[in-house]
Each structure stands twice: as C-alpha cells, then as structure tokens.
Amino acid sequence: MSSVLRSVKNVTKGYSSVQVKVRNATSNDPWGPTGTDMADIAKITFNSSTDFYEVMDMLDKRLNDKGKNWRHVLKSLKVLDYCLHEGSELVVTWARKNIYIIKTLREFIHIDEDGRDVGASIRASAKELTSLILDEERLRAERANRGSWKSRVTGLEDF
C-alpha cells in the first residue's frame, strides 16, 4: 500500500529520478535499503552538483522526519554511512559541516504502537556515525578499504 502511494506521490510531486531513487531507498517499507540501492546512490554523488544536492537534500529531509517515520531516519543514516565510504569526497565535507544533524539524533526517541523502542537502533547508528565523521583518520582508512565497514550497513532485512 505505502509503495503504491509513494509512486503516486513521486509523480504528482514531480520528483526527479534521483530524488525518487533516494525516496525509495529510505521508505517506510520494513525492508531495505538494498546494497544495490545504496551503491547506485553513492555513484550518483559523483555526478553533477545538481545530482549531488538532490541526494543530500532528500537524505537531509528524511533524517529530520518525525518519529512515526523512524524508518526514514534509520535508513537515511545507513545510506549516508554507505555514501561516506563509497560516495564522492563531497559527502564527507557535507557530513562534517552538518554533523549536528546526525549528532542530535543520538537521543532520538520513538515508541511504536506495539510499545517497541524503535528509536534504539537510530540512537546506536547516530552514535556510530558521529564518531566516524569526527575521526578523520578512521574514515580515510575505511574509505580506502571496503571490507572493514560493510557489516554495519547490511542485515537490515530483519526489522
């Protein structure tokens, strides 16, 4: 249902193909983002500056979404994590400059209808990502070596 609604919105709101890509990867569906989605998005960040900003602005919007859309937030953190490693250098600059967006998610709270503390995974991701962005040396090393960080962004199928 939500994916039908999303494709309608994608058309009526006139989103570009880049924006649609990011919206789909960070949707409310209880699965994803897939590795392919993230790899595609990371690749887009090397394109024109219009494409780059369309990716970042959409991620930014998703990161600041409300509690009910906690999956938007969590998935955007994952996509950002991925892009910090595989995307253009500009992603790193963007993240450093706007680190307060991620830092302030370390206390994200949302309890879902079943009483589950779904904010916990966001708090953990935000914590991890904040320390990564602040640790230039580590980020450099991880950008150079693909294997070491991959486990963090996989395994999203089980929520």
Binding site: N64, K66, G67, N98, Y100, I101, T104, E107, F108, I109
Partner: peptide, 14 residues
C-alpha cells in the same frame, strides 16, 4: 520535554 522539539531548537541555532 519531547526530544523532537528540543532537537529542533538545537538545530535552529546551527
């Protein structure tokens, strides 16, 4: 105090 609103105040100053 709801974190969402406190966070919005913090983000505003940045």
């Amino acid at each position: 105090p709801k974190r969402k609103h406190v966070r919005a105040c913090i983000v505003y100053t940045w």
